[in-house]
Write a protein that binds this DNA or RNA. Sequence first.
RNA 1: GGGGUCGUGGUGUAGCCUGGUUUAACACAUCGGCCUGUCAAGCCGAAGAGCGCGGGUUCAAAUCCCGUCGACCCCGCCA
Length: 586
Amino acid sequence: MQRTHTCGELNAEKAGERVVLAGWVHHSRHHGGVLFVDLRDRYGRTQVTFRPESKQLFDRAEKLAHEDVIKIEGTVTVRPPEALNPEMPTGDIEVIAETLEILSKAKTPPFVIEDEVNASEETRLRYRYLDLRRPEMRDALLLRSRITQIAREYLTGLGFVDIETATLVRSTPEGARDFLVPSRKHKGKFYALPQSPQIYKQLLMIAGFDRYFQFARCYRDEDLRADRQLEFTQIDIEMSFVDEEDVLSMSEGLIARLIGEIEGVVLPLPLPRISFDDAILRYGTDKPDLRFGLEIADISESATQSGFNVFSSAVEKGGAVRAICAPGGATVSRKEIDELTAKAQKLGAKGLAHAKFENGELTGGVSKFFNENEKNSYLEILKPDNGSLILFVADSADICARVLGALRIELAKRLELIDETKWEAHFIVDFPMFERDEETGRLVARHHPFTQPIAEDIPLLKTDPMAVRARAYDLVLNGEEIAGGSIRTHDPETLRKVLAAVDLSQKSINEKFGFLIEALQFGAPPHGGIAFGYDRMVMLLAGRKSIRDVIAFPKTTAAQSLMDGTPNEVAEEQLAELGIKIIEDK
RNA sequence: GGGGUCGUGGUGUAGCCUGGUUUAACACAUCGGCCUGUCAAGCCGAAGAGCGCGGGUUCAAAUCCCGUCGACCCCGCCA
């Protein structure tokens, strides 16, 4: 080894030892007669001191610049009492340098390697390898590695087998856009990168592996967000001879273990379960953040006789009137209410009604339209505290949910109702099996078509598919969906029925999923599983706002890598070999 | 596909709304000098951008308008 110690491990106990350290020049402080260099590596920082006794050594040390990579040999020395630095783990000592070797000169970096971000994300992404030197970024990746290790230990401890599945797979029409990989040997044909190893893990159950997991890289060619990248990692898990209880208890055990070990917080188990319908009604979303209240209340019934036309007519048309009541919100200004209204309208509401509850009565906003009866009834349902702001949406049930769900989060942020130190996890269960694709009007599987419908709903597949519930579940942590899964259909006939319900002909079923249906006929155990959105989970545990911060080399929201210029054009010969011709945009 | 915020020395920002005394300011980094106990060292000094790119309006554009490119946030999309 070129070094005897890292830059994070020396302390007063090592005083007097001769050591060799190597690392990056973090800072240097020149005092004329004495020169301090903070040497940095991924373990920490150590102060290296150059003294003027050796003129030649000192002269060379003077020329060191930020981020030069050097190796020094020297003696660990306890610092003079007035020079101790209690802020640093190595602050009791310094290494008095005797030799200096410059292993690599560094150009002046485009930004200073400090925790305080003083560069735009654009610049940081352009020089990602420099950004990753920053302790904050380094720690995020170290944490990610630790979480991987804990999850692996947990799962292998429960008898799960780690199996890698193919990443050049068959393209299927369902779901997200596929990334395609052209085949050289079969011109005109393509592999797809997996959106998830879903079918493969089911085949592994049929193969008898019983308990499988994999840290699986998944690829979806869709638009990016703070919590979405083109490629991301799932902890993919599947189990045989299980029902919901087995999968959910394994899952909550994993998340509780992680939060326990990483955050030192005990997550009480079992986790609460909320039905999909209930979540939509009370929180306007299927991934509610329950670190705060602000529950949505349905006041449709009392609004039928409303003196406010907008309310009564919404209910008449088959819609709903719902409200949230924000304690302390009466201080919200006119301008802020206008902003909330704009947000509501962007999400599809025609408007946003409000009122305040002060000194025992509803005042302001639309309250003047309400008759006594409805006022009393609203107060009974909403039970507002003095000084509350009440926001009403009267529209279709869907829009009420979507708008109030968004406003609920917005209000919680504005009124600072979210306790950032809290960890709140729960399951959402009883999902509907299908939903309507709004563009095509087609029925599509909400989770995926391999999900088993609840047994008693199977007869409805033909008659009323929208009423069919699925044996699916999501795990929500602090308002982020971090895992989702289901009990799968292991009976080929039921799978055919589900596929038929999503408008697939027998011919295309055979063509696209024939191999799976065939496999199910060779003795398929009942099975189910779940997949954790690993990047999101790490993001939450690292306290970050974007998964880019926990991925070493992420893409921008325009799906590019600023560092290496991905994606890039390729040579004509490469295309020719693959039988591909580029059609230029007009 | 749509909406929004932003783009000014190497880096981060101010200036832009209300065009012209701005020779484009400040901080960090860089370079030079002083300094033997600092740790975001300090002090003195210097160099460094013509304002993402293209077009337009105007006597005059970093400032106003249009287009375009890029970063970020959101809606759609993400079984």
